[in-house]
Computed example of a mutant assay.
Amino acid sequence: MFTHTALASLNDLEMQVYQVVIKQSENVMYMTIRELADAAGVSTTTVLRFCRKMQCEGYAEFRVRLKLYLEQEQQPPIHYGVNEIVSFFKSINNDEFEHLIAQAVAHIIDARRVIFVGAGTSGTLGKYGARFFSNIGKFSSHIDDPYFPVNSDMYKDAVAIILSVSGETPEILRLASQFSLHRCKIISLTNSENSSLAKIADFNLSYHMPLIRVNGGFDITTQVPVLYILETIGRQLAQYLPK
């Protein structure tokens, strides 16, 4: 029901509706459209747009399909947090997402080097990605300092894989612009394909997880999808590399 394509089409307000549906699925079945709108902090018009993007004519049909979807799952309630991760894996368990992974591999396969770019937690994941890709035989490096000086030699025959949850970090966008200016191919891995980074990139993969910030704005949004996507790209890429 919640396919990767459908989730990718949601704007920020519609994503708020999705997050309420995922977190309170058992209750949503019995909510009126106004109650769901209030719970998500949006208008009823936004809820209707969300329903249509889930391939439902209206809210009544959405509630029926949600009830059937939950009944088909036949699984015991799971802890908050795990539910969101399970939902992610269900949304990508299809040929469509496999095709997106294949497209990412196609962008990388002929590159002489792969440069992972990110700051903070994304920088740490970039370092992991560089090691993982190096393990399979693809020469890779990482940049976790957004002020790292980038020279022209770095762009030659390279692909930059840029990681950012929001896709709006100014320093990361500056680096992305430099790569783009020098015609270096960019693959972005963000939480939303509507972000500025996703629009700069030649190719974007998004994972659509609820944003969680604590202690004045520190991001603790789960990065399990990022690890999975990086490893999946790497494993498929390994099939095309010399043994």
Rank of each mutant, 00 (worst) to 15 (best):
R65D: 11
V82H: 13
F88D: 00
E73Y: 01
L66R: 03
E73D: 01
K67G: 04
I78Y: 02
I78E: 08
Q74P: 01
V82T: 14
S91L: 09
F62H: 01
I92E: 02
I92R: 02
G81H: 05
F62V: 11
I92M: 10
P77M: 03
K67C: 07
S87I: 03
H79M: 08
F88V: 08
Q75S: 07
I92N: 06
E73C: 07
P76S: 06
E71Y: 03
F89T: 14
N83I: 08
I78R: 03
S91K: 02
V82S: 10
I92D: 05
L66M: 11
V86M: 07
V64W: 02
V82Q: 14
P77A: 09
N83M: 04
I85W: 01
Y69L: 10
F89A: 14
L68S: 15
E71L: 08
L68D: 15
E73G: 09
P77S: 06
Q74E: 11
Y69C: 10
I85P: 03
S91N: 12
Y80V: 09
E73F: 06
F89M: 14
V64P: 03
E84N: 14
V86P: 01
I78K: 03
I78M: 05
F89H: 15
V64C: 07
K90S: 14
P77Q: 04
V86H: 02
N83T: 13
L66S: 04
G81P: 01
L66K: 04
V82P: 03
R63V: 13
S87Q: 15
I92A: 06
I92G: 02
L70I: 05
F88R: 07
Q75K: 11
S87N: 14
N83E: 14
Q75A: 09
G81C: 01
L70S: 04
P77T: 09
N83Y: 06
E73A: 08
K67D: 12
P77V: 02
R65N: 14
E71G: 08
F62W: 06
Q72D: 09
Y80F: 11
P77G: 08
Y69K: 08
Q74G: 13
V86S: 12
E71D: 13
K67P: 02
R65W: 01
H79V: 09
L68P: 04
L66T: 05
S87W: 06
I85Y: 04
F89K: 12
I78W: 00
R63K: 15
N83D: 15
V86K: 09
N83V: 00
I92K: 03
Q75G: 04
R63P: 01
I92S: 04
V64G: 04
S91T: 12
S91R: 09
E84H: 08
L70F: 00
Q72V: 02
I78C: 05
F88P: 00
P77H: 07
Y69V: 06
H79D: 11
S87C: 13
Q75I: 07
Q72T: 07
L66F: 03
L68Q: 15
F62G: 04
Q75H: 05
P76Q: 06
G81F: 02
